[in-house]
């Protein structure tokens, strides 16, 4: 099996040039690549376009990269939990493209599946439809949406093997497998890196063919946005 292992996050992201297009996995703070985000902060790379469902919070996740002004443009579906984001958006420092969540997911899936465009009903009759081709199928209107691909896709998995096969846990899966398939270079950080043969081939979520670099992360904080318990 091909060995994709790199030493750590710094090595995994060291060749990301300024002005790259990145995809970063996660929903809210669940399933985000914490180690790679920390390494990107250390690297100082800038002018980034980040495709991610959310933009983190002020002091965690992609929010940290906004604070250091490394992000030029965000492509997301929901950015509501981040004051610094809102400030940069209203002042015009940050470019933002908001996309319906299902359309965002499918555009990334399409990018990873070699499908340049598809039609979806989401956004018909709204400002999301501006400038897009609309077409009727079986009496209902749909918008044409195009694929999304990234120079670097950065994902977080629960377990991975040295050849890049990945398994996610709980709702930390979310956008990660889609993004893993849509990167020119895909970097995976995992909580547990195992030798080939240890993961059950029946249970692999992301086949190793999509993954170029893998490493075992450390010190996962897994911060919770809305800690809610039963009364």
């Amino acid at each position: 099996m091909i060995n994709k292992v790199v030493k750590n996050a710094d090595e995994a992201i060291k060749d990301i040039p300024d002005n790259s297009v990145l995809m970063l996995g996660g929903f809210g703070l669940c399933g985000i690549p914490e180690n790679c985000i920390a390494a990107i902060l250390r690297s100082g790379v800038k002018g980034l376009t980040c495709i991610s469902n959310n933009a983190g919070v002020d002091d965690f996740g992609i929010g940290l990269m906004l604070k250091t002004r490394q992000v030029k443009k965000m492509i997301s579906s929901y950015v509501g939990e981040n004051g610094e984001f809102e400030r940069q958006l209203l002042s015009g420092e940050l470019e933002v493209e908001l996309i319906p969540q299902g359309t965002l997911a499918e555009r990334i899936r399409a990018g990873g599946a070699g499908i340049p465009a598809f039609f979806t009903p989401a956004g018909v009759g709204t400002e999301v439809a501006n400038g897009k081709e609309a077409r009727e199928f079986d009496g209902k209107m749909y918008l044409m949406e195009t694929w999304l691909r990234a120079d670097f896709s950065i994902v977080k998995a629960w377990k991975g093997d040295t050849s890049g096969n990945l398994v996610y846990r709980g709702t930390a899966r979310n956008f990660n497998p889609l993004m893993a398939s849509a990167g020119t270079i895909t970097i995976a950080e995992v909580e547990e890196l195992v030798p080939v043969g240890e993961l059950d081939p029946n249970a692999i979520h992301t086949p190793g063919i999509y993954v170029h670099r893998i490493f075992q992360g450390s010190n996962y904080e897994k911060r919770i946005e809305q800690r809610t318990v039963r009364k």
């Binding site: 579906s77 929901y78 950015v79 908001l98 319906p100 969540q101 989401a122 956004g123 709204t126 999301v128």
Partner: peptide, 8 residues
């Protein structure tokens, strides 16, 4: 804040 999944 964005539409999240509401439009879909």
């Amino acid at each position: 804040k964005g539409m999240g999944g509401a439009m879909d």
